[in-house]
Design a protein around this nucleic acid. Sequence first.
DNA 1: CGCCGAGTTGAACTGAATCAAGAAACGTGG
DNA 2: CCACGTTTCTTGATTCAGTTCAACTCGGCG
Lengths: 193, 193
Amino acid sequence: MFELLLQSVKEKVSVKADEFEFAKTLFIPKKLRKRQYLLQEGDVSKYTAFVEKGMLRMFTVDEKGNEPILQFSMEGWWAGDLYSFLTQEPSQYHIEAMEVCELLLISKSSWDMLLDKVPAFERYFRILIQNSLIATQRRLMSSMSESAEEKYTKLINNFPGCLQRIPQHMIASYLGITPETLSRIRGQMSERK
Amino acid sequence: MFELLLQSVKEKVSVKADEFEFAKTLFIPKKLRKRQYLLQEGDVSKYTAFVEKGMLRMFTVDEKGNEPILQFSMEGWWAGDLYSFLTQEPSQYHIEAMEVCELLLISKSSWDMLLDKVPAFERYFRILIQNSLIATQRRLMSSMSESAEEKYTKLINNFPGCLQRIPQHMIASYLGITPETLSRIRGQMSERK
DNA sequence: CGCCGAGTTGAACTGAATCAAGAAACGTGG
DNA sequence: CCACGTTTCTTGATTCAGTTCAACTCGGCG
């Protein structure tokens, strides 16, 4: 059950077997049906989740009814609102299962304890957050200066495999464009071979 | 000379006096004139910098000649391209002093050593990066779903003081809009009192 | 005094959003 | 296994926010 998590940790830091055994005791397994919520806007994110199976989306709902997507989380990734989890303030985001999901939850207090007792996990999360920051910075620059088509092209180059599992209108929400625009872009791209 | 850095560290983690003394030995002071570069696109970011005085901007140059700004770094903040610094690959970004700057540089190898020897610094950087990620995520969502005016309004609410020191066309580059658009927005906002 | 970069203002243009309607794919229950 | 309703995707016409290009103003500084 913890193979994926162990793999994720090991590829970033070296942990001793007993440290990882200790970590295991802090996680709570949880299953989600499709469309079930891990977190809803206004609620405090009591847990952050490692995704063992399935896929989730984290998004807000804006005044016009759009649902811009901040991130997708699939197997081997984490899902959670960092801000709400750390501060225990209400979240701005919804996190919803796009497929049947199997998660490993860890509470704020367990997380704090884990980072205190096992420095390797402090480092693991530092690296995780670091990579996430780098990716988010790139996406921000892309969203500031590129056209809709450029953004889409970059996306399919960066995540070739993943996109099959994601409905197109959600890809549009992730890119910050409308489903109509994405459809037109795809049309144009395929007709010029 | 290290007061600001000490303050930044202390407000996030607790360090022992000798740990901080050790850290001090790893930093190299450096001054930059206005318009001088800390890093240029294509170069490897050998150092990351703590800003003691002055202000820098980190930006790219896109095909149309725009210079979208990823971040401003002022006193008490860090400046550097995380990706290039960590991987020692060439950077995509320029980092330029907007004013006369006094910096404290730390090399990749010193940084690695510091994080290894002093867990408090591992945590300090984790928290720093965490906060940066949260802020960048917010900015991304804002850039995906809000109008130019909304973005500008949020900016002046979030950073009331800082903006005086920044020329308007750079604020526009930070928001991902043209200087003309920003000027018009300001015009509209002031005429409706 | 005269130049130069920064900011403003105007007019024309354009990429993407919006609104609307239809086609295709999906899954749920009878 | 089919039928029906729902959701997803496509296509077209129109609108609009923001860009582009160009001219002009202002303030600072040699």
